[in-house]
């Protein structure tokens, strides 16, 4: 017994010293045939475009496919319905307080769009578009973002040559404990604060946490009920039940794509009626009009192209009723 263990140890040491090249192989499995590989080998390299298939598609063809298969979630103009991803616009917002990360504003490489649409879209029926249809939809989405012209034709060569606006926006660095930017070097143990502890953020006003009942979730995004009465003894800052940040988010998403100094919605070169809702001051000044148009008559957004929800209209109404602060 002792002898066999030492033999094994010697064999193991030999294998380790020689590295993996001489490690044992087992011979299980079947060789992957070229035909089998061809059927599954769908990846496209985003940087080089390697793997892009034969085929082609135009912006006009893409618009047709997009309107039939994509627009119900992503919006006619790529503005995104509800919480579905926004595909267009947002350029110049990456340093804004609320960035809008879209194909046009954020994606660094165009072939990645082909890879993703082919493998994962349309969301309820992936891998049902032909390669020509994928090229066409990609052409249309790039055109929505003003990256390719309306007469563009996308194929393996032209798509790989598209330079995305945010191509140089990414830094790749292997991040470890000493390369991440928020490192601090000491773990203070005693008297670590110069003054008293102050609460800088308190969620009591938000009411966004789902109730944890046995049946799982109830309710939806935000129920605008009165803030629960806090414990009389606990110090809680007085806060309005609707914050301006909530209002600003809705306006940015549903209104300011057109109502801005520089509209991101295709087809708009200036703010309609001169109404701009792109700064807190402008939003607050237009509160009355927002109430008339988006809460009472609901004439805005036109055709509800940006899919403002009833909950959002209710929130805007509550904000205005509370003094629009």
């Amino acid at each position: 017994m002792l002898k066999s263990i030492s033999v094994l140890a010697v064999a193991l040491a030999g294998a380790l010293a020689a590295g993996t090249a001489t490690a044992q192989t087992y011979g299980f499995g079947q060789p992957a045939t070229p035909a089998a590989i061809a059927g599954w080998n769908i990846d496209v390299n985003g940087l080089s475009g390697a793997g892009l298939p034969a085929g082609r598609g135009t912006v006009a063809e893409g618009q047709k496919v997009y309107e039939e298969r994509c627009a119900s979630c992503h919006g006619v103009f790529g503005e995104g319905a509800g919480r579905y991803p926004v595909l267009a616009g947002g350029q110049g917002t990456l340093t804004a307080d609320r960035s809008v990360q879209t194909v046009g504003s954020y994606w660094p490489y165009a072939p990645t769009l082909f890879d993703y649409v082919r493998r994962a879209m349309p969301f309820p029926a992936p891998q049902t578009l032909s390669d020509d249809q994928v090229y066409a939809v990609v052409a249309f989405i790039l055109n929505l973002n003003n990256i390719v012209p309306a007469n563009a034709v996308m194929d393996a060569k032209t798509l790989a040559a598209v330079k995305m606006p945010n191509r140089d926006g990414f830094l790749t660095s292997t991040w470890t404990h000493d390369t991440r930017p928020d490192l601090h070097s000491t773990a203070c143990m005693k008297n670590c604060k110069s003054g008293p502890v102050q609460v800088i953020s308190d969620l009591v006003s938000l009411h966004v946490t789902p109730e944890q009942t046995e049946s799982g979730n109830v309710g939806s995004q935000v129920e605008f009920k009165e803030a629960p009465a806090g414990p009389a003894t606990a110090a809680r800052p007085a806060v309005p039940s609707v914050t301006f940040a909530q209002v600003q988010k809705i306006i940015a998403q549903r209104c300011a794509v057109c109502h801005a100094q520089k509209p991101t919605q295709p087809g708009f070169s200036a703010a309609p009626m001169g109404v701009m809702l792109d700064t807190p001051q402008r939003i607050k000044a237009a509160a009355k009009k927002i109430g008339e148009q988006a809460v009472e008559s609901q004439a805005m957004p036109i055709g509800n192209v940006t899919n403002m929800t009833q909950a959002e209209r209710k929130l805007l109404g509550a904000w205005i009723a509370g003094g629009a602060k």
Partner: peptide, 19 residues
Amino acid sequence: WETREETSKYTELMADGKA
């Protein structure tokens, strides 16, 4: 491969606009 899940998602946008 620069897939969607390692470019448009799962990347960290910093305050200066770089990710």
